[in-house]
């Protein structure tokens, strides 16, 4: 069975690709959101899951991608393709500029710095003239949900392919070593700074591209929606739920939780977010290695899997 496992991915991707021709507009629109947020989760997985740096600021890269694309298209009248590239450049530049100082910080220092960045980014954008200050920007209207759906799917496949490469590469082994023990990683010859910055940069690239696609699809953006900090909540929880540091976990987590939250969101605003919070708490306590590990562990030891996880680190 293992011999054919690599086939599962292209088959799943192909199945997802034909969805727009068999379903309704609502499903396709839901699909675009789900695929984009899965891309964000996969991007978070690189820095949070592999390197173990809990970034609560990846929404900034998404927002910069959004704004880069919007500025290029609405203000400079560039094409969508150039806009995407411009947005990606902004996101990557931010990761390099901001990443080099803050990735020297560890654990809580890093977490708080990213939290702070995410909290002020919309305020900063609201002061920028070319970004439309706090009013926002309107992009040229383009109707074509199927196109956006396929673009989002391509992006997710690219992100997942990248993560699959990372998981098998020397680079990925270095990131995992950093996650497990950074001091030990360093004395074993790993250039930890370069590795971490590279991880954040790749994460920023995919997040920014997701933002760019979303901007053109939604056609109207403002600081509050582009730099929505609750996006960070979703990236973290989807990765955590699916399996941080795995290839398919974040995608699985994102697709499942998007569906659940879609149902919950129709009940009342905030219910979906509350649910996310509860899932994070439960996941950290009961299944810290995510859904994929849970399936395996549950098969091996049944309910004891949860008991063991809860008992492992208690005082």
């Amino acid at each position: 069975m293992n011999r054919y496992r690599w086939l599962a991915l292209p088959i799943a991707a192909a199945a997802l690709a034909v969805v727009p021709w068999f379903t309704s507009d609502t499903i396709v629109q839901y699909g675009i959101n789900a695929l984009l947020v899965a891309t964000l989760a996969q991007a978070w997985n690189i820095i949070g899951g592999f390197s173990g740096y809990p970034s609560f600021g990846n929404s900034v890269f998404y927002g910069l991608g959004t704004y880069g694309t919007a500025i290029a298209m609405a203000q400079l009248h560039w094409s969508f393709g150039s806009g995407l590239v411009f947005g990606a450049v902004l996101g990557v530049a931010c990761a390099l500029l901001f990443g080099i100082p803050i990735l020297r910080l560890r654990g809580p220092y890093f977490a708080i710095a990213t939290l702070g960045l995410a909290a002020v980014m919309s305020a900063i954008t609201a002061t920028v003239e070319i970004a439309g200050k706090n009013i926002g920007l309107i992009l040229p209207l383009f109707r074509g949900d199927t196109l956006f759906y396929e673009l989002s799917l391509i992006l997710l496949v690219a992100a997942t392919g990248t993560v699959a490469w990372i998981a098998r590469s020397r680079f990925g082994a270095g990131l995992v070593a950093i996650r497990e023990d950074e001091d030990a990683a360093q004395v074993m010859g790993i250039n930890t700074t370069t590795y971490k910055v590279a991880a954040l940069t790749v994460a920023a690239l995919f997040s920014a591209l997701a933002g760019g696609i979303h901007a053109y699809w939604i056609t109207f953006i403002d600081p509050a929606s582009a730099f929505d900090p609750s996006l960070n909540v979703r990236m973290v929880i989807m990765t955590l739920f699916g399996g941080p540091g795995t290839v398919l976990g974040p995608v699985l987590g994102a697709l499942i939780l998007s569906a659940v939250s879609e149902v919950l969101a129709s009940q009342a605003t905030g219910v979906a977010s509350l649910f996310y919070g509860i899932v994070i708490v439960a996941a950290v306590l009961l299944m810290p290695k995510g859904l994929l590990d849970l399936v395996q562990g549950f098969r091996d030891s049944g309910w004891r899997y949860f008991v063991d996880n809860v008992r492992r680190y208690r005082i």
Binding site: S169, E180, A184, G189
Partner: peptide, 28 residues
């Protein structure tokens, strides 16, 4: 001691072989 606690013994030692002197063995 500073093992990489969540990794297998083999994975731990592989990190040493992948990096280390002269940048190590690049092929996993």
């Amino acid at each position: 001691m500073k093992p990489f606690p969540g990794l297998s013994v083999l994975e731990n030692v592989t990190v040493g072989a992948l990096f280390g002197t002269g940048g190590g063995e690049r092929n996993r």
